[in-house]
Computed example of a mutant assay.
Amino acid sequence: MEFIDAVRAGLAEVGDPARAPDMQRYMKSDMPFRGVPKPARAALVRTLFAEHPFTDRAAWIAAVAELWRDAEYREERYVALDLLAHKRYAPWDGLDLLPLYEEMIVTGAWWDFVDEIAARRVGPLVLAHHDTLAPTMRDWAVDPDRWKRRTSVLCQLKARDATDTDLLADTIESTLDDPDFFLRKAIGWALREHAKTDPGWVRHFADTHALSPLSRREALRRS
């Protein structure tokens, strides 16, 4: 695909091999980096997305999937997420993309990928298709994969006053006893974000549940 070739060539051109090892170490990534800082990637994708617009939804989805699945460098997956998030293609988001998002969560398996997908991809779907996806998020909350569990907790980060507090409570309670750092951090983060809308609910939840010290500290940071 011409677009994919352009992405790979562009990342190679703007990458800094001297920075790549430090970026890989910081992210604790098995996949190598090209050494492309975020501002340079943002400038590159603006150009590439303007030069290679998609007029077909299936082709757009295929490009995202190919960038993700065949990535040799981590920045290729960042570009896949950038393509998903581009405002031009916002009308193409839909419930049928959830299996792709699930695949990206499981195979990405790290916070830099998962948090973006949870908050900006899965979250809007949960809001738009609540009756369908609330049970799915409850299922994810008890899934063996910790990144699906983290997603279930974080999927309402941007919901504000549309937050389903029953769903938030259920997903947190399902992971409450898990000692995993990323899950405990997610619980605190989700509660801290909801505290911006309903601090009383969050305080009551924190006082009536055996949160880990990390989760409680994060949840009540602004209290």
Rank of each mutant, 00 (worst) to 15 (best):
D131H: 13
M31Q: 15
Y73W: 15
Q156E: 09
L95M: 04
R184K: 09
A141E: 04
D56Y: 07
V126I: 10
L11V: 00
T197H: 06
A109S: 08
V153H: 02
D30Y: 03
L84H: 08
Q24G: 07
A12K: 13
L44C: 08
E76W: 10
Y73G: 12
R203H: 14
V14Q: 01
R146E: 14
W111E: 02
A42C: 12
A190E: 12
D145L: 02
L11I: 00
V126S: 08
E66C: 03
R222D: 15
A42L: 13
Y78S: 14
F205I: 01
Y78P: 01
L191F: 01
A63I: 08
T175L: 11
A12C: 04
D16A: 13
K185N: 07
A90F: 10
P32C: 14
A206Q: 01
P32Y: 09
S215I: 03
D115P: 01
A134S: 09
R74G: 06
Y89F: 09
E66G: 05
G35A: 09
R77P: 04
A40Y: 13
D180A: 14
W110Y: 05
P213E: 03
K28P: 01
P124G: 01
P32F: 14
L48M: 06
S174H: 14
F205R: 02
D207F: 00
E51A: 15
R46V: 03
G200V: 12
E218Q: 01
P179F: 13
F54H: 14
Y101W: 14
Y73C: 12
A210Y: 05
T171A: 04
T151Q: 12
R184Q: 15
R88V: 15
G35R: 10
I61D: 15
R216A: 02
Q156C: 07
P37S: 10
P144A: 03
Y89K: 00
R69H: 10
D177K: 12
D115W: 10
R222E: 15
R57W: 10
H209F: 01
T151H: 11
L211D: 03
H52A: 14
M31W: 13
E102L: 08
P53A: 05
Y26S: 03
Y73T: 09
F33Y: 13
